[in-house]
Amino acid sequence: MPDSRDGQSKNTIIMVTEGPSIPDPREWRIVNAWSIALAGAVITLCCLAWFKPEPYREILTFVPDGLAATFQVTLLSICCAVPLGLLTGLGRISRNRLINLVASTYVEVIRGIPLLVQIFYFYYALSGLLQLSRTAAAVISISFCYGAYMGEVFRAGILAISKGQTEAARSLGFNRFQTMFYVILPQAWRTILPPIGNECIAMLKDTALVSVVSMPDLMQRARSFANNSYLYFETYTVVALIYLIITLLLSKVVSIMESRLNYYDGKR
């Protein structure tokens, strides 16, 4: 099989519109934008809690209870959105006109409706039919929304692979299923990983929207504290810093994973 680096453009870039900027895995300088942002957020949060324990330390002990709900919704949504995105991406490039039409319609419809509206729709509009819990409504709405966006990422990553790879696999006796899952997707994953990681981090940030259905996530806990104490500036400053720290750390994890993929691909 030809080397994957010959079958994929080295300049292939999948543009993303949400989420943090993934650190360049080739950037090993200690002082860079990522480290400055992380250090600034951590130092600011620590200084606020140390020099002004009331109310900042009290806020820090109150809002983290919602982190468990935030991560629960995020992880469940990722587990649903990534397979859905893969199926959507495959459907978008399918030669079957019906499958292609269904996948394309799903993408157009979901991407045209704001996530907040989808959350309201699943929890309130369909509550009489489906009897969804807050968690189920949040996971389903976020999964459907991001599945459409991830479908476009998978589609672009798959199409970035040279047709010569497919032709070489078919000449070796692989069927279409084997060609896609054993040849194309492993090569496309190097291109797909950064934007997929970006979408997953953006998904975590968008879990703040589930607070509108009174789910006790990080944002809902912050709203509850602010409404009781009227310390809106202090409360949302802490929440913003917590979200920033989490997203920066996760973006670094994605960068490390991308670096590992490039390392092993370079050794082949």
Rank of each mutant, 00 (worst) to 15 (best):
G151D: 04
S9W: 11
N100D: 04
Q187I: 12
C80D: 08
R26M: 04
S224M: 15
K267F: 04
Y263P: 09
F154P: 06
T247Y: 01
V153Y: 03
L87K: 07
L132T: 15
V254I: 10
F120M: 07
G40H: 10
R92G: 03
F71D: 02
L126A: 11
K163F: 08
S171M: 01
Y124R: 08
L241T: 09
P23T: 10
G151L: 00
G164P: 00
F144A: 00
F233T: 10
Q72R: 13
L193Q: 01
S9L: 12
P53G: 05
M15L: 11
I245A: 11
C79Y: 05
Y106R: 09
T88K: 00
L129T: 15
P195R: 04
T70E: 01
E167G: 10
W189D: 09
C79A: 11
R57E: 07
K10D: 03
A33Y: 04
K10E: 01
P186S: 14
S77M: 06
R176V: 03
S259P: 06
Y263S: 13
S4D: 15
A148N: 07
F233Y: 14
Y106F: 15
S162A: 08
R111N: 13
L249N: 10
S162L: 06
D65M: 07
D265L: 08
S21A: 02
V239S: 07
E27D: 15
W50M: 11
Q131A: 15
G66A: 10
L248Y: 07
V117M: 08
R190F: 11
I242E: 00
D65N: 15
E234Q: 11
N175Q: 04
R111C: 10
I30S: 14
D65W: 02
G40P: 09
L249S: 08
P195F: 06
S141V: 00
E199Q: 03
S127N: 13
N96H: 05
R92E: 00
L101G: 14
Y56D: 12
L116A: 06
M180S: 12
V107N: 09
S211I: 06
P64T: 14
L132F: 08
L87V: 12
A33V: 07
L38Q: 03
I140V: 07
F225H: 04
N228K: 05
V16F: 09
I256A: 10
L132C: 14
F181L: 11
Q220H: 07
A156F: 06
R155N: 00
E58N: 15
G266W: 00
L159V: 13
S259F: 05
A33S: 15
A37R: 05
I99T: 11
K252I: 10
L101N: 15
M215G: 12
C47A: 13
D217M: 05
S127K: 03
Y123D: 14
L261M: 12
R111Y: 14
L250H: 13
L45V: 12
L84Q: 06
V63G: 03
T70D: 01
L218R: 01
L231S: 12
R190P: 10
S133Y: 02
D217F: 06
V82K: 03
V63W: 02
A49C: 08
T17L: 13
F181N: 09
M203R: 05
R29W: 03
S251L: 05
L76D: 10
L48Q: 07
I184K: 01
P186L: 07
L87F: 01
M257D: 10
G266L: 00
E18T: 06
A138S: 08
W28V: 13
